[in-house]
């Protein structure tokens, strides 16, 4: 299994990967709370970016409404915990099932009726907006005034109930991110991954080779939705509050996909590289603007937008393929 996973990765790439993992594992001993919080955001973005990448990067289906799966996952686990005392790891099962079912409904409607491209993207936005407004009126989970998880001072980390300090959340998020990478790596090297890429490249040609494109697109959206819902559970228990206006908002969906696109869409490391760059950039910008006393609301986002503009104009394939090519870190396809 391990041997198969490492198949085809050049030695230099492996060394870098091992080094990166070591640094990430050791980080909590060195880093202060601020750095740890930023790293949690990086890993969270890398994880959700990877989940989205399954759909767009691998199978070529552009979803602009992935916030719906974060929201459904977060609300499902939080509601089970608050109303019935169900532990988040059990709630996770329900969360993943609900989000995957929602993905299946969207996928079934769109793919059965041949809705694709821009139309599919807008359908996904519509569903996310639908959920946002729906949850705004859903009293059982607090409607528009928000849904809160009980916060108390914990003397020790309670992993089973996901109550604890940032270090615990950091390791949980790191484990999730590593798992997502491993899953995606194995999938890309198996039949399903090749079939997804065939669909992404040319759906008509894919069908002529016997690929049931409807079925494989359904696999992609269900898997992607389920993976994203896990992030939603993490989000709910890490931040302890959920507002429909925030979790389902279209800007959440957009933030989620900027990482993989900047990093390199359809690549395994694109989401991580993109998350590192964007989060790093955003934090650095904050520091710089504060130092220059330019810290008016909006200034950060303007620079953010300008950086995006520069990256997308200069490196259309994303940053990672370019860097990897320069350093000779990867084989032909990772």
């Amino acid at each position: 299994m391990i041997a198969r996973m490492l198949d085809g990765v050049p030695g230099r790439g492996l060394a870098v990967l091992a080094g990166l993992l070591a640094v990430l594992l050791a980080a909590p001993w060195v880093a202060n709370d601020y750095v740890l919080t930023v790293l949690i955001i990086v890993l969270y973005s890398a994880y959700t970016g990877q989940a989205w990448n399954v759909m767009m990067g691998f199978a070529g289906q552009l979803s602009l409404g992935h916030a719906i799966y974060v929201g459904l996952g977060g609300y499902a686990a939080a509601a089970l915990y608050v109303h019935f005392g169900v532990a988040p790891w059990l709630g996770l099962v329900a969360a993943v099932a609900i989000a995957a079912a929602c993905g299946a409904v969207i996928g079934f409607l769109a793919f059965r009726f041949g809705v694709g491209g821009v139309y599919f993207a807008i359908l996904t936005i519509a569903f996310a907006e639908f959920a946002r407004i729906g949850f705004d009126h859903f009293r059982w989970v607090g409607a528009s005034s928000g849904f809160f998880l009980p916060v108390a001072n914990y003397t020790r980390n309670d992993l089973w109930n996901l109550r604890g300090d940032p270090t615990m959340f950091y390791y949980v998020m790191l484990a999730l991110t590593v798992a997502a990478f491993a899953i995606c790596h194995v999938l890309l090297k198996s039949r399903i991954g090749y079939y997804w890429q065939a669909i992404r490249e040319d759906e008509v040609a894919a069908r002529s080779l016997g690929i049931d494109t409807f079925r494989y697109k359904m696999y992609a959206i269900v898997l992607s939705a389920g993976m994203t819902a896990v992030a939603g559970v993490f989000f709910a228990f890490y931040y302890n509050n959920l507002f429909p206006e925030q979790v389902f908002h279209i800007s959440r969906s957009i933030e989620m996909i900027l990482g993989p696109i900047i990093g390199g869409i359809g690549t395994l490391f694109g989401p991580l590289v993109g998350a590192l760059l964007l989060t790093g950039l955003s934090e650095a910008m904050q520091e710089l603007l504060t130092a220059l006393r330019l810290d008016v609301p909006g200034a950060k986002q303007v620079f953010y937008g300008l950086c995006l503009l520069v990256v997308v104009m200069a490196l259309p394939g994303g940053v990672w393929p370019w860097v990897a090519g320069k350093l000779g870190l990867t084989g032909p396809r990772s």
Partner: peptide, 13 residues
């Protein structure tokens, strides 16, 4: 998706 990022960046600005 490339066009999308371009226009989202402009919208953000």
């Amino acid at each position: 998706h490339s066009q999308f990022i371009l226009l989202v960046a402009m919208a953000l600005i």
